[in-house]
Amino acid sequence: MRQAVTIILSIAVLALFIGLGTWQVQRLKWKEGVLVEINARIAADPVSLPETPDKARDTYLPVVVSGSFGEGALRVLVSTKQAGAGYRLISPLQTDQGAILIDRGFIRVADEMPSVPEGPIQIEGNLHWPDDRRSSTPENDVSGNTWFARDLDQMAEELGTQPTLVITRQMTPAEPRVLPLPVTSEGVPNRHLEYAGTWFLLALTWSVMTLGLLWRKKRRNT
């Protein structure tokens, strides 16, 4: 009787692990579909900036904006695979619809701060509402102009703009000393394959442990 209960419980736990692993595989397929949609949206033809950009509706929306840069550039600490540690530069752009935030791109930590481009500027990029802040992210050093997260409301208040951010893909005329860091889907979390592997590994481990336990019990009873 006790052995039968053990077998039933073991099968139930094994079924749970396999079910969770299968669910994560299904989630992986769903997330891959979402990433395909995001990448297609990012690469679509740019449109004019909406009058009232909306996070739920307009995240990743490709836009083209024209205007002239205002004074100031905020430095956001970031690290890239290609160039290492550096800063994103966030500056105000005065447009016909008011002033907005522009993520101009990347400079290395050791580079001198480039001056803000003068004259009429046209920028192709993507609207974005970055989620940079984590529980371990320090507070922005506003007075020292070292930012650890792109907190749009705080940046907009500091530069006197709307809390609307366009991340540059292409600027005309270009800034030779600033490397654009366009929006990509790399920051979208997708760990479902890892989770699926974990659950299936637990299922395998559980099966081996259960079979070993049953084998030892059988030996003791013979």
Rank of each mutant, 00 (worst) to 15 (best):
A110D: 13
I102G: 03
S79V: 10
I102E: 01
V109A: 14
L101S: 00
I90T: 11
I107H: 03
G86H: 11
S115C: 02
Q82G: 14
S115H: 06
A83D: 15
G98E: 12
R108Q: 15
L89P: 11
S115G: 13
L89K: 11
A99L: 02
D111S: 11
P117N: 03
L89G: 06
A110T: 05
E118F: 08
D96G: 15
G105L: 10
P120M: 03
Q97L: 09
Q94F: 13
I100E: 05
A110C: 00
A85M: 14
G84I: 07
L89Q: 11
T80M: 13
P114D: 01
V116P: 01
T80S: 13
F106L: 10
E112D: 13
D111F: 06
M113R: 01
G119S: 00
Y87F: 15
F106S: 00
P114H: 03
K81L: 13
R104Y: 00
Q94L: 13
S91Q: 03
D96Y: 09
G86D: 09
I107M: 01
M113Q: 06
S115E: 13
I102T: 04
R104G: 03
P120S: 02
V109Q: 14
I100A: 06
G119E: 01
S91T: 04
P114N: 05
G84Q: 15
Q94C: 05
G86K: 10
A85E: 15
S91W: 00
E118G: 09
M113L: 14
A99V: 04
E118D: 10
S79L: 08
P117K: 00
V116Y: 03
R108T: 14
G86P: 06
I102W: 05
A99N: 04
Y87S: 09
G105P: 07
Q97C: 07
L101K: 08
Y87D: 04
L89R: 12
L89Y: 10
E118Y: 07
P114C: 02
Q94P: 04
R104F: 07
R108W: 04
S115Y: 02
L89W: 07
L89I: 05
D103Y: 00
A83C: 01
T95L: 05
R88M: 14
I90W: 09
G84F: 10
